[in-house]
C-alpha cells in the first residue's frame, strides 16, 4: 500500500471518528460532556484527599496524586478509543466488513478512529491540570517546567498507549459479547499498577513487580517530574532513579509493549479473517 493510501486511511478515519464522537449533540453540550467525566473523576480523589488531610493541598503528596491521575486520563481514552472502534464498526454500525474489503490500511484506520478520544482526552487533561493550578495549589511554574523532558515523554507515551490500544483492538476482533469493557477493565487494572494516585509501596510486595514492569509507571513519574521537579520526594518509589534512567526504562518497555501490540494485532487480525469473525454480531 502506498504512502498516500496510508495517509488517506488515517485522515479519513480521524474525520469519521470525530464525527461519530461529536455530532450526536451541539458543540456546547459535547464540550461539557467531554470534560465533565474526567473532571468529576479527579474531583472524587480531591475530596478523598481533602477529607483525610483536612485540606493540606500544599503537601508534595497532592501534586503527585493529582498530576498522576490527570495524565492517566490519556490511558483510558487512547486505549479504549482505538479498541472501541472495532466494536462500534463491527457490532453497532456493522460496517467493519466493508472497511476490511476497502483499500484501507486497517491498523492505521483504527488508530485514526482513536484520535477523537485522544483530542477530547487532551482537553480534559488540560482542564484538570488548570483547575488544580487555579483552585487547588498544584505548584505548576511554567518557567520551571522541563519542556525538553515533558514533550518527548508525553509524545512517546501517546505512541505507546496507541499501540497498547491496537493490542486490545486485536483481542477485541476475536472476542464476543464481553469485549465492551475490555478497554475499561485494562485501564482500571493499569491504574492500580501504575502508581497513578498512590505509590507502588502501598501494593502488597508480591504485586509490586507488576507495577515495575508497566511502562505507564515510568511515564507518569517522568511527566510529574518534568512539571513539578521536587514531586519525586513525595514518595520514594522511583526516587533513586535519575530522569535519564527513567527515560531509558520507559523507552525500553514502551518499545517492547508497542512491538507486542503490533504482533498481537497482526495475529488476531489473521485469526479473525480465517474464522470469519470480521462481520460477527454478538448483540452489542
Amino acid at each position: 500500500m502506498n504512502r498516500s493510501a496510508l495517509w488517506r486511511s488515517f485522515r479519513l478515519a480521524t474525520w469519521l471518528g470525530w464525527q461519530i464522537e461529536s455530532n450526536w449533540t451541539d458543540p456546547f453540550l459535547f464540550a461539557i460532556y467531554s470534560i465533565i467525566k474526567p473532571i468529576t473523576g479527579a474531583a472524587i480523589l480531591v475530596i478523598m484527599y481533602g477529607v483525610i488531610t483536612q485540606g493540606r493541598f500544599e503537601d508534595p503528596m497532592f501534586p503527585y496524586l493529582y498530576l498522576g491521575n490527570a495524565f492517566y486520563i490519556y490511558v483510558g481514552s487512547i486505549m479504549t478509543g482505538v479498541s472501541w472502534a472495532v466494536i462500534d464498526d463491527r457490532e453497532h454500525y456493522r460496517t467493519l466488513k466493508y472497511v476490511y474489503v476497502a483499500p484501507i490500511h486497517i491498523p492505521l484506520y483504527l488508530l485514526g478512529r482513536g484520535v477523537a478520544r485522544f483530542l477530547t482526552g487532551s482537553i480534559a487533561v488540560v482542564i484538570t491540570i488548570a483547575a488544580g493550578v487555579l483552585f487547588l495549589s498544584v505548584p505548576l511554574d511554567f518557567s520551571a517546567i522541563q519542556w525538553g523532558l515533558f514533550l518527548p515523554t508525553l509524545l512517546f507515551g501517546v505512541f505507546m498507549l496507541t499501540m497498547m490500544g491496537l493490542l486490545l483492538a486485536g483481542l477485541t476482533l476475536i472476542m464476543a459479547r464481553h469485549e465492551f469493557i475490555i478497554g475499561e477493565v485494562t485501564a482500571s487494572a493499569l491504574y492500580i499498577f501504575s502508581g497513578a494516585a498512590f505509590p507502588l509501596e502501598v501494593l502488597p510486595p508480591w504485586l509490586r513487580p507488576i507495577g515495575f514492569a508497566m511502562p505507564t509507571t515510568y511515564w507518569l513519574e517522568l511527566l510529574r517530574r518534568s512539571l513539578v521537579s521536587d514531586v519525586a520526594q513525595a514518595f520514594p518509589t522511583l526516587s533513586i532513579l535519575s530522569n535519564a534512567q527513567l527515560l531509558s526504562i520507559l523507552i525500553g518497555l514502551g518499545v517492547l509493549f508497542a512491538a507486542l501490540g503490533a504482533l498481537i494485532f497482526w495475529f488476531c487480525d489473521r485469526l479473525a479473517r480465517e474464522r470469519g469473525l470480521i462481520d460477527i454480531t454478538t448483540h452489542y
Partner: peptide
Amino acid sequence: SWLIFEVVMPIGTTIAYVLVYKALRA
C-alpha cells in the same frame, strides 16, 4: 466471563480507592 468482568470492574475501582486511602493513612 460476564461475571468476571462485572466483578472485576467494581473491584478494580474499589481496590484503587482503598489503596489511595491507605497511602493517605486514612
